[in-house]
Amino acid sequence: MKPAAFTYHRAHDVADAVGLLSDLAAAGGDPKVIAGGQSLMPMMTFRLARPSALVDLGPLRRMPSMTTIRAEGDHLTLGALVTHHAVETAALPDGFAVLARAMRWVGHLPIRSRGTVAGSLVHGDATAEWCLLALLLDAVVVAEGPSGRREIPAGELFHGFYATAVDHDEVVVEVRFTRPAPHAALTEFARRHGDFAIVDAAVALDLDGGSVTGGRVVLGGVAPAPVRVPEAEAVLASGGVAGDALWAAVADAAAAAVDPPDDAATTAAYRRRLTRTLVADACRDAAGGLR
């Protein structure tokens, strides 16, 4: 269990990183960006990933734009090297407080201390909390490549099975969350605390007093990529009194809509049943945020 050999390159700024990626690829290599490395390194240790070169974004941490969390109007912008733990401990506006609360589900403190928001999104694990949150709060990933910057909305980001719309020669510079959700929650189930979820659910409720007027339901672990569940959101959109009866209806709709995989980890039926539990739990938590 030792990584295969690679060449190592420190990027001095974003343009440098993009240039390194292009040059190394042009020379026939298979370079990869490393930021926190918390997903990449285990894969390299098992030699499941064996990039010919690593471009380290570490030195970019001295650039404030890469590590700051900025609230601007209805948007929250996270620099690409913001860590999970930085979000966990940040004082966030109400509309984005769910981000901080959800961080306790991301691995453990030592992982959260190194792992980055952008790294998690680009890794694209179907159960990763950041991937669900991106769909829940309409994140926009800003990536810089050889032809300049472009914005990728969360809805177009995940291609499934760890593939994302961020190209190999692109570097994420920031992630912007554009849909505040003061009544939102994320919950999940794993057999052991801190593990990748079997199923996780994120819910944002549009509340008008005690009434629900709409909302979002996002699930991980039920498809190759994290997904929104329109059937469950339709139940929220049709409205009703915030309470267990409505949550059950949303949960039932979500469980009926998903077509989860049967795999070595567990069965489709169990994932479907967990979906029902977790969506209801997330709705309850999200409404509890009403206070």
Binding site: M41, T45, H85, P110, R114
Partner: peptide, 23 residues
């Protein structure tokens, strides 16, 4: 060596991290 057991935990710039998950 894959970031789960935590036996290699050290402080890097005051934060606890897995020393097996850092080059």
């Amino acid at each position: 060596e894959h970031g789960v057991c935590g036996a290699c935990t050290v402080l890097v710039d005051d934060a606890p991290v897995r020393a097996c998950l850092m080059f």
